Amino acid sequence: MTTPGRHRPLRIGIVTVSDRASRGVYEDKGGPAIREELTRIVANAWEPVVRVIPDELEVIAATLAELCDAEGCDLVVTTGGTGPAPRDVTPEATEQVCIKMMPGFGELMRKVSLEVVPTAILSRQTAGIRGTSLIVNLPGKPSAIHDCLMAVFPAIPYCLDLIGGAWIDTDPDVCTAFRPKS
């Protein structure tokens, strides 16, 4: 049996949600941290599709839809906008564009983050599926991005297999993808 996305090129959207970074007032550290982590984790060739956008619900939702539908990203990873502040609306935008929510991703990320800092309970990261794409919301701090990606990434390749996304191989010295035996 062949996995539907086995021979497609892997495209990964990396979205920084930040008013200041989108205006050039603040250096984007989250997007580059995601790219660095994915470069360490993903063993097969992949193409990043990068966006830096403001904390605006409709802009975030439109960007996520564009990356999934028009850009053909199999995985879209966001950073920023997951806290309780009034302009933190990344989870709402993700919910708006997804057909299925995957709450286990957010639950695991909060669990891992709570081992480091008690304010992780304020985080609202989530994940969801749009077509053959998985969208995962990460926190904004580079060290938290590392912790959260390392926690959830073992499940991402199999999730993409199940929804028809592209195949992901991982570097087993960094992160081992879990795929149940058939």
Rank of each mutant, 00 (worst) to 15 (best):
H7K: 14
H7W: 14
R8A: 09
P9C: 09
T16H: 00
V17A: 03
S18E: 02
S18N: 07
S18Y: 02
S18Q: 05
D19R: 08
S22W: 04
V25A: 14
V25K: 07
V25R: 10
K29W: 06
K29F: 05
K29N: 12
G31L: 06
P32T: 07
P32Y: 07
R35T: 05
E37M: 15
L38P: 00
L38S: 05
L38T: 05
I41C: 03
V42N: 03
E47P: 04
V49Q: 13
P54D: 01
P54R: 02
D55N: 12
E56N: 10
I60Y: 01
L64V: 10
E66N: 08
C73S: 11
D74R: 05
V77M: 11
G80D: 01
T82S: 13
A85V: 11
A85R: 14
A85G: 15
P86Y: 06
R87S: 12
V89D: 02
V89P: 05
T90H: 03
E92G: 09
T94W: 01
E95N: 11
Q96I: 04
V97H: 00
C98F: 02
C98H: 02
C98N: 02
C98W: 00
I99N: 07
M101H: 05
M102A: 14
P103L: 13
F105I: 15
F105G: 00
F105K: 04
G106T: 08
E107I: 12
K111G: 09
S113F: 06
L114A: 11
P118V: 09
T119Y: 08
L122Y: 06
R124F: 07
Q125L: 11
T126L: 13
T126E: 03
T126P: 01
I129S: 01
I129N: 02
G131I: 02
S133R: 00
V136R: 01
L138C: 09
A144Y: 03
A144G: 13
H146D: 13
D147L: 15
P154E: 06
A155Y: 03
A155V: 10
P157W: 02
P157F: 05
C159E: 09
D161I: 10
L162A: 14
G165A: 10
A166N: 04
T170L: 12
D173T: 12
D173N: 15
D173H: 10
V174W: 04
V174H: 04
T176H: 12
A177R: 04
F178W: 14
